[in-house]
Design a protein around this nucleic acid. Structure first.
Length: 512
RNA sequence: GGGGCCGUAGCUCAGUUGGUUAGAGCAUCGGACUUUUAAUCCGUUGGUCCUGGGUUCGAGUCCCAGCGGCCCCA
């Protein structure tokens, strides 16, 4: 159901927009009225202010490439047709210069009153910053040497009713940039490029995996219980089945079921949800890659991780050496491999094999030790002191087994798990195991709640169907998880995860 | 959860020790201009100073609470 027809619509009736109120008074309303007046004038001229299909145009990037080879004094190059948004508009009497944006770039247009004729000139009078137009013209160069399309035909495509941000500074407020991402994409320096890079990174991750014989699959996001990681899930409810459900926190347990099912090489690129804090490195919903390869181990996954990082970096245009978060990063493979215990000893000076020594170092670092399992204390100490020192990329390998309930133990070393985490600039980027496939040990570990770990922090969540699957025989395998958002942060040198998520979570805006 | 910083016009920002009617640039509107580059020039319009209390003769400014954001810590 629509509201009032065009002729009786209210001039400044505000449309509720997400997050930000459309002004109903003051300058905002006056600015909108000016645009609606022009819209009315277009309608009076018989022009549809909302446009129609516009075929046969060339992207600005291709037009620009063509223009590079032209005589730079000519105004009469080849005929071109482009469409896009008006970003700048400079009027010199009966001559108007426009900077037009499309997804590939920016190009100058020149419209002269004589050149376009009196009818089109009436349309030019109705143009505002932010409007979408299509033009035909000759490609050439203006007197001041700027590549320019000398317009012979103008087609109005869409009116913009809102004032764009400051044409020089753009949209600066980080809050507004994220709530109104569409504006940020239009006006923000490098914003669109960063999300293009994200798309290329995801595309490359898929290509690397599928070229190695991996099959892309989709597990359930609605689950009875959330397993595969230590995190608090979001709770929801299915009405028709009248059953409580949670949103998945990891992809792991269902992908391993597929290994049992003989799929052998599977991956999923999908959203997971964790009901936890928000920070420059955490968003409650984020994109995760998990990949599992039968008959491999965590070493297989190290090779795969390197391949993904190198190739995705190339796709995103990431240099092999660059600075991020104030640290120098060198992507040259092979990445350093360092044992968990060795790092802990080198950084804290404790003896990692001696719980008392670890506890002393932990206490000195302000880590809670009383009544907690030694490996939980060790893990907290590692987080507190070691992580921040890891410029990386570095594979931290061989973790305390008791904090890795889904991981196979090292041969002859039951207290060491075949696990690695990849760190860059003190941030965890990837996590991989030689997967535990012993159903009896898995069941036992699901029942083991370590002292000092809350249920939220524990991966010990019984999944009896998963155990049953393991009992049918899961091949020995390597498994890998990569946080795609963090990967994009890293490869595009973004300081915050909110810079690489199009619509990060926000509290609703109320009132002022 | 604790601490620090921030919120002024559609956008980007000033606003002194608490003191007259809260300013600028961009944008808008009107005017000049057929080669501009954030065009320029002349004129013009536009405010819930985040919200609510409080102190004060007087609050954008000081205090308290709340809302929203950013950062650091847990």
């Amino acid at each position: 159901m629509h509201d009032s027809p065009e002729s009786t619509r209210q001039p400044a009736s505000p449309v509720p927009s997400p997050g930000v109120a459309t002004p109903s008074t003051g300058t905002g309303a006056a600015l909108e009225k000016a645009r609606r007046d022009k819209l009315d004038r277009l309608v009076a001229l018989g022009i549809d202010p909302w446009g129609r299909r516009f075929d046969g145009m060339t992207s600005v990037a291709i037009v620009r490439a063509e223009g590079e080879s032209l005589d730079t004094t000519s105004e009469t190059g080849p005929a071109v047709r482009v469409a896009g948004r008006i970003m700048l508009l400079r009027s010199a009497g009966s001559l108007v210069f426009i900077e037009l944006h499309d997804r590939t770039g920016r190009i100058q247009l020149m419209l002269g009153k004589k050149q376009v004729g009196p009818d089109a000139w009436k349309i030019v009078d109705c143009l505002d910053l932010g409007d979408l137009i299509g033009v035909d013209g000759r490609l050439g160069y203006s007197k001041s040497g700027e590549m320019t399309i000398f317009v012979s035909h103008l087609e109005f495509l869409t009116k913009s009713l809102e004032t764009p941000p400051d044409k020089y500074h753009g949209l600066v407020d980080t809050d507004l940039r994220q709530r109104m991402r569409y504006l940020d994409l239009i006006h923000g320096e490098g914003v669109r490029e960063r999300f293009v890079a994200r798309s290329k990174i995801v595309e490359t991750v898929r290509r690397v995996l599928t070229s190695r014989g991996y099959l892309e699959v989709e597990g359930p996001t609605l689950q009875e219980s959330a397993g595969g990681a230590a995190a608090r899930p979001f709770k929801t409810h299915h009405n028709a089945l009248d059953m409580p459900l949670v949103l998945r926190i990891a992809l792991e347990l269902h992908l391993k079921r597929l290994l049992v099912g003989g799929m052998e090489r599977v991956f999923e690129l999908g959203r997971v949800y964790r009901n936890e804090g928000v920070s420059p490195r955490h968003n409650p919903e984020f994109t995760m890659l998990e990949a599992y390869e039968a008959y491999g181990d965590y070493g297989t996954m190290m090779d795969l991780t390197e391949a993904i990082l190198i190739e995705a970096g190339q796709a995103a245009g990431t240099p092999m050496r660059f600075e991020w978060m104030g640290r120098m990063i060198d992507l040259t493979p092979p990445f350093r491999r360092a044992k968990y215990d060795d790092l802990l000893r080198d950084v804290t000076g404790c003896d990692p094999t001696d719980p008392a020594s670890v506890a002393t170092a932990a206490a000195a670092a302000g880590v809670e030790t009383a009544g907690r399992h030694p490996d939980v204390v060790k893990s907290d100490l590692f987080e507190a002191k070691v992580e921040q020192t890891l410029d990386g990329p570095v594979f931290v390998i061989d973790y305390p087994a008791s904090i890795c309930p889904l991981t196979k133990r090292k041969v002859g070393q039951p207290h060491v798990a075949e696990r690695f985490e990849l760190y860059v600039a003190g941030m965890e980027l990837a996590n991989a195991y030689t997967e535990l496939n012993d159903p009896d040990l898995q069941e036992q570990l699901f029942r083991t709640q370590l002292a000092g770990l809350s249920a939220d922090e524990s991966m010990a969540q019984m999944d009896t169907d998963f155990i049953r699957a393991l009992r049918h025989g899961m091949p020995p395998a390597g498994g890998l998880g990569i946080g795609i958002d963090r990967l994009v942060m890293f490869l595009t040198a973004a300081p915050s995860i909110r810079d690489v998520i199009l619509f990060p979570i926000h509290r609703p805006r109320t009132g002022g």
